[in-house]
């Protein structure tokens, strides 16, 4: 399904309910009525092309937005990515953790849930560290560059030299997101294929559902980072990567 400016937002949500947390990030709540996407964007003061590109990237795994340079205002993109990060750290990770702890508490059988929980914690710390790096380092640096000001990441560096730090750090930052995605896939496999012993089945289903939701969100979000943010940053800084 490809949404257009004339599509009703409700159609998109009926097609794929994973759009619900995405519209929340744009300040849109459920109860969207039968308004078209364009009407809703006008109401909320959102750029329609950008909103549509994000929605279509989410519901179509092969969708690649065209005319990226004109559609994506970097500041709006960064706002969106910050809200996405907040959603991971404030809602999704604590939700998985809460259900996982309950699952361990209420499962008496001989199982490997404690070991799997350690693996989840490792993944969680990696994602939180990547989010911290986004918010404290990369996003401010990109915003400053957009505003054509000099950003001094480390005051001991001569003005402008910070740019020499970008390639490796940038690579690590994007690499960290991809590592988290790989580990989420592993975590899903471990639950689906390799789980053993006795456990509370309802709570297990809640944990697995939450993992699948986060996995899909991060997978789609990484596509936005890799296909849209990364090229924008490379252009902004005139990098030759």
């Amino acid at each position: 399904m490809l949404l257009t400016k004339d599509s009703r937002l409700s159609e998109g949500i009926f097609f794929d309910s994973s759009l619900i947390p995405v519209i929340y990030r744009f300040g849109i709540s459920l109860g969207v009525g039968d308004k078209s996407i364009e009407e809703l964007c006008e109401e909320k003061g959102l750029p329609t092309s950008f909103f549509l590109a994000i929605l279509n990237t989410f519901i179509n795994p092969t969708y690649s937005p065209e005319d990226v340079e004109n559609i994506f205002d970097t500041n709006i993109l960064l706002d969106y990515l910050e809200k996405t990060n907040d959603y991971y750290s404030r809602i999704q990770l604590p939700n998985i953790e809460r259900h996982f702890r309950l699952l361990i508490e209420r499962s008496d059988g001989d199982n490997n849930l404690e070991h799997i929980f350690s693996f989840f914690n490792e993944l969680k710390q990696e994602l939180e560290s990547s989010i911290n790096s986004d918010h404290s380092q990369w996003f401010p640096m990109i915003r400053h560059q957009v505003e054509d000001t000099i950003y001094v990441a480390n005051s001991s560096l001569p003005e402008g030299d910070y740019i020499n730090l970008l390639p490796d750090g940038l690579g690590n930052s994007f690499g960290a997101c991809n590592n988290v995605e790989e580990k989420l896939n592993d975590l899903a496999s471990i639950f689906v294929v390799h789980l053993k012993g006795e456990y509370d089945k309802n709570l297990c289903m809640a944990v697995v559902n939450a993992i699948f939701t986060l996995r899909k969100d991060i997978n789609q979000n990484n596509r936005i980072r890799n296909r849209i943010l990364l090229p924008a940053v490379i252009r902004l800084f005139g990098l030759n990567i």
């Binding site: 490997n112 070991h115 799997i116 350690s118 693996f119 490792e122 590592n179 790989e182 580990k183 896939n185 592993d186 975590l187 496999s189 471990i190 689906v192 294929v193 390799h194 053993k196």
Partner: peptide, 15 residues
């Protein structure tokens, strides 16, 4: 195994 990361493989080996 459907597991790619080194730490995921370690978990499988442990389990």
């Amino acid at each position: 195994l459907g597991i790619r990361s080194a730490s995921g493989l370690s978990l499988y080996a442990l389990m």
